[in-house]
Amino acid sequence: MIKQISTIALVAIAAIAFTGCSGEKKATEVKTYKYSTTEVYEKSCSKCHGLNGEGNVEKKTPALNDRTAGEMAQDLFDVKNGGTNQSSGTDHEIMEHNMQKLVDKGFDYDINSMAEYMSKLSKK
């Protein structure tokens, strides 16, 4: 196996290795959404979580207005990606399913923007 050393690979690696530029994404992707954050919340999220993010006991949906934007961003990342770790799974199995359906219906959003919006709900 060692004998298969490829000079090309080594030189290529050496050109980049550990110069401090590794890993950073060069290209920035600009994603556009069908609805604004406010529209997504008012047309979709609010149906189950309430217009003020107060949650709905009958529907067993949690409140969304009890967390900071940073905490909410974590939860939204978990929900949208089916977990934040390699094989740990998600804390939100039901919402993971629902979110996929909602994204398919066009209710997609930027996580940071939505977390910021939700964190201000109770203060309205």
Binding site: N81, G82, G83, T84, N85, Q86, S87, S88, G89, T90
Partner: peptide, 10 residues
């Protein structure tokens, strides 16, 4: 392997 999640990697 018995992982809690449903995939090998994100």
């Amino acid at each position: 392997l018995y992982p809690n999640g449903g995939k090998m990697f994100g």
